[in-house]
Simulated scan of single mutants.
Amino acid sequence: MTERGQFQLFPKSQGFFPYVWAVYLVLPILNLRGETGVKLILGGIMIAVFAISYRQLYWVRGGVFYVWLTTQMVIIVVLSLFYTPFNLYMGFFTVNFIAYYTENKGFKIAFTSFVVMVLSVLVLVGRELEWVSIMFLIPFIVIMLIMPFGVRSMHQHQKLEKELDQANEVIKELVKREERMRIARDLHDTLGHTLSLITLKSQLVEKLVTKNTERAQEEAREIQRTSRAALRQVRELVSEMRAISVAEELAETGEMLRTAEIALEVEGDISLEGVSDLTQNILSLCIKEAVTNIVKHSRADKCFIGVAKTAGEVRVTVKDNGIGLQNGERCNGELSDGNGMKGMAERLSLIDGSLSLSSEEGQGTTLIVMIPLIVKEATGGESA
Rank of each mutant, 00 (worst) to 15 (best):
S80P: 07
L81D: 00
L81G: 00
L81V: 09
F82W: 15
F82T: 09
F82V: 08
Y83M: 11
Y83C: 09
Y83H: 13
P85Y: 00
F86G: 02
F86M: 08
N87D: 15
N87M: 12
L88G: 08
Y89A: 09
M90V: 04
M90D: 04
M90I: 02
M90A: 04
G91C: 13
F92S: 09
F92Q: 07
F92D: 06
F92G: 05
F93S: 00
T94H: 08
V95H: 01
N96T: 11
F97Q: 06
I98Y: 01
I98L: 08
I98F: 02
I98G: 02
I98N: 01
A99H: 04
Y100E: 14
Y100P: 01
Y101S: 07
Y101N: 11
Y101H: 14
T102C: 15
T102E: 02
E103I: 03
E103A: 10
N104Q: 14
N104E: 12
K105Q: 12
K105V: 13
G106T: 03
F107K: 13
F107H: 07
F107W: 09
K108S: 08
A110H: 03
A110S: 15
A110E: 09
F111P: 09
F111T: 03
F111V: 04
T112D: 03
S113L: 14
S113Y: 03
S113P: 01
S113D: 06
S113R: 06
F114T: 00
F114M: 08
F114S: 03
F114V: 00
V116P: 04
V116L: 14
V116Y: 00
M117N: 10
V118F: 05
V118R: 03
V118C: 12
V118N: 09
L119G: 08
L119T: 10
L119S: 13
S120Q: 10
S120R: 10
V121G: 02
L122Y: 02
V123T: 11
V125R: 06
V125L: 13
V125I: 10
G126L: 14
R127T: 08
R127P: 02
E128Q: 13
E128A: 10
L129T: 06
L129P: 01
L129C: 02
L129S: 00
E130S: 12
W131I: 07
V132K: 14
V132M: 12
V132H: 10
